[in-house]
Amino acid sequence: MPEAKSGVHHAAPHEPLLIFRGQAVARLLPVLLGLMSLLAVFFVLQSMQRLFVIQSALRVADGELTVIVPTAPGLPDTTEDPALRRALDVLEATVGLTRIRTLDEAATRRLIGDTLKAGLGAQVPLPAVITLGRTPRVEVSMTELRRVLERAAPGSVLDDNAALRSQLSAQRLAEAGSTAALLAVLLLVVSATTVLTISQSMDLQAPVIEVLLMSGAPDRLIIRQFTGFVWRLALLGAGLGAGTGCGLQLLLWLRSPASDPALTATLLPALVLVAVIIFALIVLLATVTTRWRVTGKLRQSF
């Protein structure tokens, strides 16, 4: 056999060598990573959507006020009532209130008629209802408003949805907590599963690594062959999985009749963000784990 030339420099081949042992594992890996990213993306988004719905209900409740003004008996038209006029004047003079509107009789009956039915009569006519909104940035003191309203229209009631708001706040807190917990658990499970499966499949590679080593392959070539292979598998698997998760969620949104434009505006970026984070996490962990395991195997050699 002719003498091998020494001092040949290591020009590593660029094409993948397909040396990964355990082709069944190699086929299973992207499926597994894909499934994980699909489930993770889907569940996180579901949870985030519930949070968002509560948040927007809270915003509405926060901005809506109702004032109920008792009217004097015997007037042909309640809108002519002086107490109502005074109450409206006070409200209009207050900075930070908008959309001030007096409900017509039908709407009033719909809103409070049932509750008051028994007490209504010739001496106690239907009260007037004013709905109004709060401008988001200006802080209006409710106690102060109640005081001036009481002076302008005695017996009037200002409802600022306090009960509903505190209920929604509690719901929001609970939902935010469960979203965070779900996210943490999912990321943990996804990370642990990725690291474990990749570690396991890399342990299978020990004999191949020894063959490569004794064939004169430099460390970086061995590391690159394996990380490159796993990187491609992870890209494929996690990419498809995250994509499918997003698609599924989008489909659900499109099919739900009450698609709030604000919902799409906020949740669409969140959808992309969550998918990208989970995708990147899986690909990164898979590659880093491969590198770590192969390096560990190489260190055991001389």
Binding site: V8, H9, A12, P13, L212, S215, A217, I222
Partner: peptide, 20 residues
């Protein structure tokens, strides 16, 4: 290496040692 042909098994050292 089970999933490589006899040819590829034999050629492997040539490819990885940069002596191709």
């Amino acid at each position: 290496i089970d999933h490589l042909s006899v040819y590829d098994n034999v050629a492997l050292p040539l490819r990885v040692s940069g002596k191709a």
